[in-house]
Design a binder for these strands. Structure first.
Lengths: 107, 107
DNA sequence: TTTTTAATTAGACACTTGCCTAATTATACA
DNA sequence: TGTATAATTAGGCAAGTGTCTAATTAAAAA
C-alpha cells in the first residue's frame, strides 16, 4: 500500500495513468505529452511499474506500457472500508455524545 | 486530488485514518499511539485536515478529530474509473494486435 | 492568580524527491 | 559494419517532507 500511494502522489504520474486508460503507449509517446525530459518520464514510469500500476512489454526497440487494473481493485477495497458507515462507539467513558460533552465542558 | 494523495502518502497518516475509522479521538489520544512526538502528530493531523480527510472540533481544552467520509467517496469514483474495462483502441496505425506486432518485430 | 495540561506554531536539520544533462544499452536500418 | 533511434541508468542539484526541541496559546484546576 505504501508504494502504491507513493506512486499516485504526483500529478505527472496520475496523468500518465489517465493516458494509459485510453490506450497502451510507448515510453516515447508518453514523454511527448509532457514538457519534462525523457529520462524524467522514464523515472516516473519506473515508479509506476514498481507500484504494479503499469506493465511494460518490450517490443523490439520500443517499450509499450499498459495499465495493470488489478492494483486498482485492491485500492478500491481499501477506500471502500472508509466509505462504509462507521461503527458507533463511544469515545469517552460515561457514554455521553458530542453535544452533551461540549455543553458540560463549555457551559 | 493533489492534496488528497499527498496526505495518503504516509504510513502514519494512513494509520491515523484507520484509528479514526473505529472512533473519534483527541489529538493526544492519537499521539499516544505513536512513538513520534506530539508536534509531529499535530503536523500530520494538519495535513489530513487540509486534505479534508478529517474534521476537528475543539472541545474545551481538547481537540477531537473525526473522519470526513465524503472525501473517500470522491476518491472512490476516481479509482473506479480505472477498474472498468478499458475501451479497445488500437495503439498503432495498421490495427494489428500486440501478438502480431511482436511477431513482426521479433521475427 | 498561579500552575498544570492539551495542543499548536516556529525554526532547524537530515533525508527524499523530481528535475536536469551526459553517458550507456539495445535494437533497427542503410 | 556503422549510424540512427528508443529508452534507461548515472550523477548532481534545488526544493520538499518528516522529524525533533523549544516556545507559544488556550483552557482547566488548584
Amino acid at each position: 500500500m505504501n508504494t502504491l500511494f507513493r506512486a499516485l502522489d504526483d500529478p505527472t504520474r496520475r496523468q500518465i495513468l489517465e493516458m494509459l486508460r485510453e490506450k497502451d503507449l510507448t515510453a516515447g509517446e508518453i514523454a511527448d505529452a509532457f514538457t519534462i525530459s525523457k529520462p524524467s518520464i522514464s523515472h516516473h514510469l519506473d515508479l509506476l511499474r514498481q507500484a504494479n500500476l503499469v506493465i511494460s512489454i518490450k517490443e523490439g526497440q520500443f517499450v509499450r506500457y499498459s495499465l495493470n487494473t488489478t492494483v486498482f481493485d485492491e485500492m478500491l477495497s481499501w477506500v471502500m472500508a472508509f466509505t462504509q458507515k462507521k461503527k458507533h462507539k463511544k469515545s469517552n467513558k460515561n457514554g455521553e455524545g458530542r453535544e452533551e460533552r461540549e455543553k458540560r465542558i463549555n457551559g
